[in-house]
Design a protein around this nucleic acid. Structure first.
Length: 156
DNA sequence: GCCAACGTTGGC
DNA sequence: GCCAACGTTGGC
């Protein structure tokens, strides 16, 4: 049984629309530079898992749609690229510190689910997203997944 | 733009 | 290993 996740992104940097406009609707989810999130990408996120794409740092943050993991964790090459904003000169080449996965855009919510609606939904109260966690990669339970898809206008 | 919460760094 | 300083996240 596939797992479920929530990935945050700032739409000014990379948005849902950017994801579905990408070749094959697929993109490498790069630039994650937090150890807890890295551990999820490296160890727990599996091919076929579902991903909720969440827009943060905007007037009305919202879950925009779903994506599917199409490639499991592998070293993020941007850590070794001096020209990249995600360059990490202290990451050892023989033991890369940062990982990424590839995701493919799947279904756009007919109605994006705004953060205030998530907050007022009792069954979602345990989500890290709603509990001042700044984790950019978070696990989502099967129940939470189903509830949010329903709120967004997707049957399941 | 503010600022609280949280993560990371580095001196000791 | 402690912890103060600093940087980042992200809602508001």
């Amino acid at each position: 049984m596939p797992g479920q996740w929530l990935f945050k992104t700032e739409p000014g940097t990379f948005s849902w629309d950017d994801l579905v406009a990408a070749p094959g609707r697929t993109t490498a989810w790069e630039g994650v530079r937090n150890y807890q999130a890295r551990n999820f990408l490296r160890d727990r996120v599996k091919k076929g898992d579902g991903v909720l794409i969440y827009h943060s740092s905007i007037p009305v943050p919202a879950v925009m749609g779903t994506a599917v993991v199409v490639r499991e964790g592998y070293p993020d090459p941007t850590q070794f690229d001096p020209g990249s904003p995600y360059h990490d000169p202290s990451s050892p080449a023989e033991n890369p510190r940062w990982y990424r996965v590839d995701v493919q855009g799947d279904r756009k919510f007919p109605e994006p689910v705004p953060l205030p609606r998530l907050r007022e939904t009792q069954s979602l109260a345990g989500m890290p997203l709603l509990n001042r966690s700044r984790l950019s990669i978070q696990p989502v339970s099967a129940r939470e997944w189903k509830v949010i898809l329903g709120m967004g206008g997707l049957a399941g």
